Structure formats: C-alpha cells, structure tokens
Simulated assay, not measured.
Amino acid sequence: MSDTRVRVEALADEFAEDARRLAAELSLPQGGDADFALQLGPLGLQCQDLEPGAGGAVRVDFVGGAAAHRRLYGGGSGQMIAKAVGIQPGVRPSILDATAGLGRDAFVLAQLGCSLTLIERQPLMAALLADGLCRGLLDADVALIIGRMRLLPGDAIGLMRAWPEEPPQVIYLDPMFPHRDKSALVKKEMRVFRALVGGDDDAPALLEAALALATHRVVVKRPRKAPCVAGATPGYALEGKSSRFDVYPKKSLKP
C-alpha cells in the first residue's frame, strides 16, 4: 500500500463492533488523518476517497448497477472475454482469476457457467470483494452465480507455485499496467486501485507461474496498445476498442 493512509469507519453505531473487528483484522486505525476510509454501513463495505472533490465510494456490488446490466444485456458467450477463456458449446473451463480485483470479470465468467477461484493479494481489496460475495449470496437472482466463485486471499505467485489442488484449465490475469500518468486515471475505481495496489511490477513472474500451472491456457488482459507482459510470447490476441486479451494456449479445450 506504500504510503497510502487508510482508516476504518462505522457509518452508524450498529456497525461499530464489525468496524472494530475489521480494523483489527487489517491492522488499520479507526481514526486520524487518512487518504481513504474503509466504511461499514447499510450498503455493506465500501472504500471512500477522502480527497476533496472525490467521487462516491467504491464497493463490490454483484446485484445491481453495472453488474446487473451486464448480466441481463451483456451478450452472453459472444463476449470477447468468453472467447478468450475458451467458452464454447459444451465447454465451460475451470478458471483461476489470479488478479481478482473487484471481481467483475470473474462474475461474468461465473454467470456463463464456469467455476472460478479468485485470488486477491491486497487485503483491503480482498475485504471489499469478500463483502460483495457475501451480499450476493443473499440475492435469489445471483446466488447461483456467486456459488460458482470462491475467494482465496493471498499472494497469487506463491499460491500458484504451491498449488495443492487439481490445476485449473485456464488462468486469467489482469495485472495493473504500470502507467503513472494521473490524467489517465479517470474512474474513481482506478484511483483506489493505484493507491492501494500500485502497479503489478511482478507481472512477468505472475505469467510464468500461471503458465506452469494452467493445463490448457493462460489469458492476460491488457490495455489495447500496451506491450505484452515480458516473458513468453502469446499465441494470439483478441483485440477490442480499449483492451485486448493475449492468449497463451497449451492444449485445446474440448467438450
């Protein structure tokens, strides 16, 4: 988290005990000057940028908003991400999302019928994601989708190198592109990511570990014009308007 200061807050008295517990778990203060506040309230857990003029809070919501719109109108298995991971008639690969973030891409893939393991190494991001998953299980429309997702907080490289289970068929990576120009950080989520996570400077090691573990393919999401992650050369790429998917095939996915 570098020098970013974060405190934990309860937005109402009824959340005070949970806030104290969370602060202890994350070794964060509940007062003092801070750049961000991790807030517990009636809508769940959220991260609020405390900079003057900052936008609204960031939280994980699989039930409403953008997630609901994409679930209902997102294009199904015709989406580029679905093609990248190898979804096709009769094929729903097991997927490890080793850079889960807010879980949005994982939710899309789980909605399409894939079983997902999510790894998030930044403890605050993992807490936000865990909260969103728990709230999603309470909604009848998305509980079945959330049931296909499990979260493993921790370092993805270490976890992949010592993977104790059956290897995933596909590993999906979306490492933070190490671009420091603040003018590019348009979305409020990106400011939170940059401040809390920084750039994934170990992306080459992440890719190497993923290629060693995945049985069928590794997929790396990149900004459309960004260079490939250093290391192995992708077999091919699927390119969209703002991003692309570099695909590293190992074995064909078959029904």
Rank of each mutant, 00 (worst) to 15 (best):
E9W: 09
A10K: 07
A12F: 12
R21N: 14
A24Q: 14
L26S: 08
G31L: 13
D33W: 09
D35P: 03
F36I: 04
A37E: 09
A37Y: 10
L38K: 00
P42T: 09
G44F: 03
C47P: 12
L50S: 11
E51D: 15
E51R: 15
P52A: 08
R59S: 12
A67F: 04
A68R: 14
R71P: 05
G76Y: 08
G76V: 06
S77Y: 07
Q79R: 02
I81K: 00
I81G: 02
K83R: 13
G90H: 07
R92T: 12
L96A: 07
A100F: 02
G101F: 05
F107R: 04
G113R: 07
G113H: 06
T117R: 15
E120A: 06
P123H: 11
A127E: 07
L129N: 09
L133G: 05
G136A: 04
L138E: 15
A140E: 15
D141A: 13
D141W: 03
L144G: 14
L144K: 15
M149R: 00
G158P: 06
G158S: 11
L159D: 08
A162W: 10
W163L: 10
P164F: 09
E165N: 14
E166K: 15
V170T: 01
Y172D: 05
L173N: 12
L173R: 03
L173Y: 11
D174H: 12
P175F: 00
M176A: 04
R180W: 13
D181C: 04
K188N: 09
E189C: 06
M190L: 13
M190V: 13
L196D: 01
L196G: 08
V197A: 13
G198V: 07
G199M: 02
D200M: 06
D202S: 10
A203E: 01
A203I: 05
A203W: 10
P204E: 10
L207R: 01
L207Y: 04
E208Q: 08
E208Y: 00
A210E: 06
L211E: 03
L213W: 06
A214Q: 04
H216E: 04
R217D: 01
V218M: 09
K221Y: 02
R222E: 12
R224K: 09
R224Y: 01
R224N: 06
K225D: 15
K225L: 15
V229M: 07
V229Q: 06
V229P: 02
A230H: 08
P234A: 05
Y236N: 10
A237V: 14
L238T: 05
L238W: 02
R244A: 00
F245A: 11
D246W: 02
V247G: 00
V247F: 11
Y248A: 11
P249Y: 04
K254R: 15
P255E: 13
